[in-house]
Amino acid sequence: MTALTMVRQFGEVLLAIAIAPLFTGWIAQCRAWLQSRAAPPLTQPYRMLRKLFQKDVALATHASALFRMTPYILFGAMVLVAAIIPSIATDLPFARVADAIALIGLFATARVFLSLAAMDIGTAFGSMGARRDMMIGFLAEPALLMVLFNAFLLSGSTALPSVVEASTAHSFLMDPSLLFAAVAFLMVLLAENARIPIDNPATHLELTMIHEAMALEYSARHLALVEWASDLKLFNYACIGFALFLPWGIATHGADGGLALGLAVAVLLAKLTVAGAALALIESLSAKLRIFRAPEYLAMAFLLAVLGLLVHLLLGA
C-alpha cells in the first residue's frame, strides 16, 4: 500500500514537471490567436529548454556561489510544492507532511533566493527587478493567505487534501464566500506569476519588467532551470486554484483505483486547457498597470478575500 502511494506520488510530480512548460506554451498560443498573430507551436517551451541546456554557461566574474545555486533551489522548491498540492489524488504521502501555509513559505523561499541572486551580480536591472518583486510579493502574500483562510474555514483544516475531500463530499455548489476568494485568488495568481496587469511575460527589453529583469544575468542551464521553475510556479498556482475552487475529478481517499486516477489526469488536463484559455483571454483584455497602481490592485485582492470571510461569518453557512 505504501509502495503504491509512493508510485502515485512520483507519478504526480513527474507529470507536473513534464506538462508545466506545455501549460505555458498553451497560454502563449492562445494569446497569439487572440492577437491574430501566427501562434508558436505548443512544443516551443520544450525546444527553448533543450536549446538552453545544450549551451555553455556564461557567468559574471563576481558571481558568488549563491548565484549558481539559486536555479537549483528554485527548481527544487517548485517541485516540492508540486508534490504537496493534491492535483490528481488526495492520498499522497507528501501532501500530509506540509499544509498550505508551509506551501506559501516555500513560494517565499524561492522568491527570496531569486531576489538575492538578482542583486548578487550588482547590475541596475537586477536589483531593480528584485526590489519590485519583493514589493509585489509582500503585498500578494497576505492576500493569498486570506484566500486560503476562506477555504480553511469551510473545511476546518489547513491541509489541502482535507480541503479537497471536504468540498467534494459536501455538495457540488460553490459556497458564496468562495466566490469572493476565487476572484481574489485570480488577481494574486496574475500578480505572482508576472502576468499582464502587473508584469508582461512576453518582453525582455522594458524598463517596467520584473521577473525578466531578475533572470537577465542567467544563461544556459541556469536560465533553463529558472524558466522551468517559473512555468512550474504557474502550473502550481493553477493546481492550488483547482484544489480550492474546482475540486471535481480529483481522486479522493478510498476511491483512487487505476480508473479513477486516469480519469483524474484527464480532468486535470481538461481544466488546464480551459484555465489556460481563460488566462490568455484575461491577459489580452486587460492593460498593464503602472507599477504604482500595483499596491492598489493587490489591496483590492486582499479586501475581496476579507469580504469572503465576512460573508461566510455573517451569512451563516
Binding site: L173, L179, L315
Partner: peptide, 8 residues
C-alpha cells in the same frame, strides 16, 4: 451564491 455575486 447569486446574492454574493451581486455584492461582488
Amino acid at each position: 451564491l447569486l446574492a454574493a455575486s451581486l455584492l461582488l
